[in-house]
Amino acid sequence: MNPSEKGVVTPVRPEPIKAVPVRHPGRWAGAIIILVLAAMLVHALIFNPAFQWDVVRQTMQDDTIIHGIGVTLELTVLSMLMGVVGGVILAVMRLSPNPLLSGTAWFYIWIFRGTPVLVQLVFWNFLGAIWENLSIGIPFGPEFWSESTNKLIPTFTAALLGLGLNEAAYMAEIVRGGIQSVDEGQTEAAHALGMSRTATLRRIVLPQAMRVIVPPTGNETISMLKTTSLVQVISLSELFTAGHDIYSRTYQTIPVLVAISIYYLLMTSILTVGQYYIERYYARGANRTLPPTPFQRLRSLFAGRPAPKTGHDVVPGLEGGGHV
C-alpha cells in the first residue's frame, strides 16, 4: 500500500445486498391465462380449414405477390422521402417571419391535409384528362418545351405524387412541432455565437427536434406502408392489388389476405426495429446513458443479472443491461 495512504481510513465496501425480490403472484397467474388463450388462438388458426394454410404458403411464393412487395416498398420509401424532405421545407417556411413563405406553406397544408388521399391519387393519375400537355415557357407567353401529361406522369409517378405530396403536409406539422419543442435558449445561444439562421437550424435546432420528430415519423412510415394499398384505385400492382387480383380470380379470399398480411406484418416489424435504433441515436445527450439495444436486453435476460464490473465507478442505473 502507498505509505501516504496510511492513517487514512479507507471505507470498507459493504457486502452487496442479497434480498429476496418481491414476488408477483398476480403476474404469474396473468401469464398463464394469456398463454392458454394464445394456445387456443393458435390452435383455432391452424386447424380451421377456412385458412387453407397450403394456399397461404403457395400465395406467399407467388411471383406477382413478390413483385408487389417490391412496388410497395419502393412506394413507401420514396413517398416517405418526399414527405420528410417536403415536410422539413414546409415547416421551416411555416415558421419563417416572411408572411409570403408562411402563407404559402399554410395554404399547401390546408389543401393537402384537407382532402382525401384517394382523391389526390386519382387527380394525379387523371391529370392528363384535365391538361393534355405540360409545358415550360414564359407565363402566358410562348412555350419552349411541351410534353404529353400522361407520358410525363406514368401511373407509378402519379402514385408517388399522390402519396408523397400528401405526406409532406402531415410531416410538416410533425416537424413544426419538433422545432417548436426545442428551448428558445438554444437558438439564442447559437445566434449569440454568430451562427446564421440556417446553421442554427441545421446544427442546433433540428438535431434536437429529431427526438420529437422520429416517433411520429415511424408511425407515419408504418401507416404509409399500408396506405400504399390505396393505389389500387389507379390500378398499380403493389402487394395488396396483387393479392386482390389473385383472390378475385380464385375466390380464395381468406388465405390470400392472410398471406399478404403476414408480409405487411413482417415489413412493419423491420421498420419498428429500425425506428428503435434511430430513436436511440437521437437520444444522445438527452439521457445520461443510452437505452440498451434489443440485443443487449436479450443477452441480459438470459445471462440473469449483468456481471458486476470491476472498479468503483459503476454507478447504478448507468449500466445498460440493468433494467429489463
Binding site: 435558449g185 434536437q208 437521437y282 445527450g285
Partner: peptide, 14 residues
Amino acid sequence: IGMVFQRFNLFPHM
C-alpha cells in the same frame, strides 16, 4: 461578443 446565460444553454446533443 461572447454571451453567458443564466441557464447555461449548452447544446445538449454535443
